[in-house]
């Protein structure tokens, strides 16, 4: 079963073609990595898949339902959630409140301007459970703006889990992390991927080799190759794209 697919996806920015006829099929339950040199259009692709950009042509389907014309918040409600390359959190709220605010979005609570904010506490148990999952429990009351880089990445993942996604897009989850942080994220992604489909953009090849079932290689906005990691890394076009670098 194909969880997420793109057909002939194109995105033009004033004459510059950022995404060029991208076809993508992500199988349900797999961990699919998208790799490519800088400027290959990975984040643009994520923006197209999650609704933050509208395609110039082509379409995106989530479990065979077209979603390319929907607003990002509508796509989220259909079960596709994403994290951001540069940590995007609610800076003035505490870590716990960040997760609570994210969790309550599906309820009627956010519209209730007449109720006390204490009514948000109903989401506290679930929020704490999520923080437990991403190992942020001891920082629950810290203002999100005061977190370290690695901690913000963890909060990112927690926030993207709040919407109970069937498909999770993770944009460079290990960016800017040292080896210990990377190991932690690898473990986290593996746990989170159980029962879900995960698509991740990654630069770190060891992460890709450890996690990915299949990968897609992008270059200049086009798909260069797609398939199982071991097959793709030996593909001569892919090797050339990385300028002869050992695709480890």
């Amino acid at each position: 079963m194909i969880a997420l697919s793109a057909r002939g996806l194109c995105k033009d920015f004033r004459g510059f073609r950022a995404t060029n006829l991208v076809d993508l099929d992500v199988e349900e339950g797999e961990i699919h990595a998208i790799i490519g040199p800088n400027g290959a259009g990975k984040t643009t692709l994520f923006n197209l898949l999650s609704g933050f950009l509208k395609p110039t042509s082509g379409e995106v389907r989530l479990y065979d339902e077209p979603i390319s014309q929907l607003a990002p918040e509508a796509i989220v409600r259909r079960g596709l959630s994403r994290s951001f390359q540069i940590s995007s959190v609610f800076p003035t709220l505490s870590v716990l409140d960040n997760v609570i605010v994210a969790l309550q979005s599906r309820s009627a609570l956010p519209g209730a301007f007449w109720r006390s904010e204490r009514s948000m506490r109903t989401f506290e148990p679930r929020a704490r459970a999520l923080l437990e999952e991403v190992h942020l429990s001891n920082l629950a009351h810290r203002a999100a703006a005061d977190l370290s880089h690695g901690e913000k990445r963890q909060l990112e993942i927690a926030l993207s889990l709040t919407q109970e996604p069937r498909v999770l897009l993770l944009d460079e989850p290990t960016s800017g992390m040292g080896s210990e942080g990377v190991a932690r994220v690898i473990r986290l992604v593996r746990e989170v991927a159980r029962g879900r489909t995960v698509v991740l953009v990654e630069h770190n090849m060891s992460v890709v080799s450890e996690l990915a079932d299949r990968i897609t290689v992008l270059q200049y906005g086009s798909v260069l190759a797609t398939g199982r990691y071991d097959d793709v890394r030996r593909d001569p076009r892919v090797v050339e794209a990385y300028l002869g670098e050992e695709v480890a």
């Binding site: 409600r77 609610f90 994210a102």
Partner: peptide
């Protein structure tokens, strides 16, 4: 952006 990506 973050608000939209959690469904608001």
């Amino acid at each position: 952006t973050r608000a939209r990506s959690v469904g608001y």
